[in-house]
Nucleic acid binder design. Structure first.
Length: 175
DNA sequence: CGAAGAGATTAGT
DNA sequence: ACTAATCTCTTCG
């Protein structure tokens, strides 16, 4: 990874799936990454007050855990340093998948103009620093399987089940 | 720098 | 089930 400003704080958000953590650095794009579930040793930080963007994102996440509706992505809040153009295009594409829907790795690959790069899309999802916000859990295998998930496959299944249920549809995956 | 390895995949057999 | 194909990024000589 390239630059990325030093981490100056972390905001914890409780959810039905465990505690989520938003780590942040300096303005103007303070949000470094989101963790779910939270990394075990709770990180200790100084007496800093979270930037506005961070607190608003925390609210958005709380809202999501309540109604599982689409989270509007503020790309300008996110620290995207170190990402290549193609990776950014992939994240933007995945960001458009609404709750209750899913898209295959291959379909995303096609959407970014690399129809044979399904595996690349998978690798990019594995490196996604903004889970939930960039809904990498909505990217699944073309054969109906779930595919992988950094936070654990059972979490991915839970999220998709909740979203499908809220959208009034059957779970969009096989197992 | 070029070569080789590594994926949260896929389509075929 | 297993295999080969395919693409970008990372890591190594």
């Amino acid at each position: 990874m390239k630059h990325r400003s030093a981490t100056i704080g972390a905001l914890h958000v409780s959810s039905p799936f465990g505690t989520a953590v938003i780590r942040y650095g300096e303005e103007p794009a303070p949000i470094q990454d989101i963790h779910l579930p939270a990394p075990e040793p709770a990180e200790a930080f100084g007496p800093f007050r979270a930037p506005d963007a961070v607190r608003r994102l925390a609210d958005m996440l709380l809202g999501y855990f309540e109604n599982f509706a689409m989270i509007p992505i503020r790309w300008d809040w996110l620290d995207l340093t170190g990402l290549t153009e193609l990776q950014l295009r992939t994240l933007r594409e995945v960001g458009d998948i609404p709750p209750g829907a899913v898209k295959s790795y291959g379909a995303v690959a096609e959407a970014i103009g690399r129809p044979r790069a399904a595996r690349f899309v998978g690798a990019t999802m594995a490196a996604n620093r903004f889970p939930l916000l960039v809904p990498c859990h909505r990217v699944v295998r073309s054969d109906g399987g779930l595919g992988g998930f950094g936070g654990g496959i059972e979490l991915k299944r839970s999220l998709l089940e909740q979203e499908a249920r809220t959208a009034g549809e059957p779970p969009p995956f096989k197992p």
